[in-house]
Nucleic acid binder design. Structure first.
Lengths: 142, 142
DNA sequence: GCTTGCTCCTCTAGTCACTGGAGGATGTAG
DNA sequence: CTACATCCTCCAGTGACTAGAGGAGCAAGC
């Protein structure tokens, strides 16, 4: 009932991650090395598929591979010490919060521009002001 | 009242962008080449500072340099055709919206983990499920 | 006015996270 | 059994930095 298996190309199509990138993720240990067929071909399952989709989304959101590694470690070691997991989750949470805040600010500004635009010309664009606040500039990256 | 000027090191400290990176941005045309002193040193002003801080935040949010270039073009050509600006702003807006949605989902999951954690063990971590939705997987990048 | 020491300059090379291609084996359809 | 797609490994290239070598500029102290 859950034993679907796919070759790398199929996984690539379904996850949106290209074959060379999938092999690369295996190489750097983000994705476990899958079993192989007689003919040495990689065989993936649904769990791999989900993991890859997760990695892809996280990368698109701008998380570095190391950050993703820590997120995946939460998944991979559900029995690990709570303190460790908590620390990781909290750090990521802070990062996520800041990103959301910045994106919301940028969104507001882009919306304002689209609206202003409807009424005439772009006039005063403040995209820079929106994201150039240097107050919480230091100490952002976890 | 607005004539502050700084050498590259000062700009680096204030913007959080390192000198070599600032020079790199100049090279690829994200930042205009500033005037130089007698002794061939770059001299920046407040506008450069804001622009750099903006670029930094946008990069942290995962926007590619090309996307940032289009955002900056809104700022740089406030008199350009509204249609062009509108198209750019709308495309970025869609991207921003999707990012916000994904980050909120991830945030919820991380929060749940921190809470669960407080009560005992990590147990079932679903960070992967949170971001592995493949439904709107294709057609995301503008 | 000259040395000490910091910042700056350019240039080249290295890193991270991929991306693409060469050259060859495998698997599947006619 | 021949096409032809897909896979394999390996190696080179890209984007966006990052670090280092080697040298010039400048401010401060003696």
């Amino acid at each position: 009932m859950s034993g679907q298996s796919f070759p790398i190309g199929e996984v690539a199509r379904r996850s949106g991650v290209k074959p060379p990138t999938i092999r690369y993720y295996e190489e750097i240990g983000l994705l476990p090395a899958p079993p192989r067929t007689e003919g040495n071909r990689r065989v993936y399952d649904d769990a791999d598929l989900r993991r890859l989709a997760f990695i892809r989304h996280a990368r698109e959101l701008g998380f570095e591979v190391e950050a993703i590694r820590t997120l995946l470690s939460l998944q991979d070691h559900p029995d690990q010490s709570c303190a460790a997991a908590d620390t990781i989750a909290r750090a990521r949470l802070a990062e996520v919060d800041e990103r959301i805040a910045k994106l919301l600010a940028l969104k507001g500004e882009l919306q304002r521009m689209v609206e202003t635009c409807a009424t005439g010309r772009v006039a005063d664009c403040r995209v820079i002001e929106t994201l150039s606040d240097t107050s919480h500039t230091h100490g952002a990256l976890a």
